[in-house]
């Protein structure tokens, strides 16, 4: 055979540097700040939980690929990233078997049953999370009071701010916003630190890995709905607007609390299960924001961000029908 034969193929003959692996690697890098802050505040148990989730997801993927007789896709880091995200939305006090089951559910129920990467309709992390939450609500609500690393091992159980808000509207006035945004509040391992999530999310947007429309839409939707919900709250109407001193606190509180930030920047824009069209992605984000606050205010559950993402995932095919105008397309009768 002639060594000097030329290759012939279609254009383009150069490709960008982004691969599936590098894309998910950047995702993991972007998750890192929030995860590290979480580990700092919740310590050793949190680390074990996250590691168990990732390990369980990886083993499950290996088993799934053996059952399906397909090559394993662990090299693409997709599974690792999914496991990491699930670990970040588990409570630090979860018993050891919870992350193990969660990781397996992510892979089997969320990904492999649909045919692997690219095929699943809903965010597999949240599919697993909802399954866990419905099955073991007590274990999924085992929150700790955060304490800086090495300051003792006596963990005290705590309520999250959103739980307190359900019972008492004056939480809005009492909360220390600085602590909330830094992540010094009880909550899931990786979703408490608003600043760290924001840094990671902005990095993803700059690297053009997630569309900016989803987080912007989600935050706008949440702010709008939070203002509406708070100022129509009968408890506040009773109190009188003048007496209620929180005002802008409403916005900062709802943006910082619960799972909104991680849903807006990481879980919602997860590539496979999010829409692709410009307006579709924006409405997807707005839907997440609205759902979050609706559930927080009127729902029976504590936080609605994750349910919002799942609901909007289901609306994906509809949202992807909102296509932009094709440049140069001749429209009949125009």
């Amino acid at each position: 055979m002639n060594e000097n034969l030329l290759t012939v193929s279609t254009s383009p003959h150069i490709l960008g540097r982004m691969s599936v692996r590098s894309m998910y690697l950047e995702y993991i890098i972007a998750l890192a700040p929030a995860l590290l802050v979480g580990l700092y505040y919740f310590g050793f148990p949190a680390l074990i939980t996250v590691l168990l989730t990732v390990a369980s997801a990886a083993v499950s993927d290996f088993v799934a690929s053996k059952i399906q007789k397909k090559p394993t896709t662990l090299g693409s880091l997709h599974i690792v990233c999914m496991g990491l995200m699930l670990g970040m939305i588990l409570p630090p006090g979860a018993p050891w078997w919870l992350p193990v089951i969660g990781g397996a559910l992510t892979v089997f129920l969320g990904i492999s049953i649909f045919g692997g990467i690219g095929a699943y309709p809903m965010n597999p992390v949240l599919v697993a999370w909802v399954a866990l939450y419905i099955s073991w609500p007590e274990s999924m609500n085992a929150y700790f009071e955060p304490q800086a690393l090495g300051s003792g091992d006596d963990w005290t159980e705590a309520e999250t701010l959103l739980m307190q808000l359900k019972g008492d509207i004056s939480t809005l006035e009492m909360v220390e916003m600085g602590k909330l945004w830094l992540g010094q509040v009880p909550g899931y391992i990786g979703s408490t630190s608003t600043w760290a999530l924001l840094v990671g999310g902005v990095y993803l947007i700059i690297r053009r890995i997630i569309p900016w429309q989803i987080p912007v839409g989600a935050l706008l939707g949440a702010v709008a709905m939070a203002l509406i919900a708070t100022y129509t709250d009968p408890r506040i109407l009773e109190l009188g607007y003048e007496e209620f001193a929180a005002n802008m606190n409403v916005v900062w509180f709802h943006l910082g609390a619960g799972g909104l930030m991680i849903a807006a920047f990481f879980l919602g824009p997860e590539p496979v299960s999010s829409p692709v069209t410009p307006w579709g992605t924006f409405l997807f984000g707005v839907g997440i924001g609205l759902m979050t606050i609706i559930v927080r205010t009127w729902g029976g559950l504590v936080d609605g961000a994750f349910y919002g993402v799942l609901l909007m995932n289901a609306a994906n095919p509809l949202l992807d029908r909102i296509r932009p105008r094709v440049i140069g397309k001749v429209v009949s009768g125009a």
Partner: peptide
């Protein structure tokens, strides 16, 4: 020969607004 992962980068790049 990888399946499409639906990330939407092509949609963001397409100069004539296709999907």
């Amino acid at each position: 020969d990888h399946p499409c992962i639906h990330c939407g980068r092509c949609v963001a790049a397409c100069p004539v607004n296709l999907i």
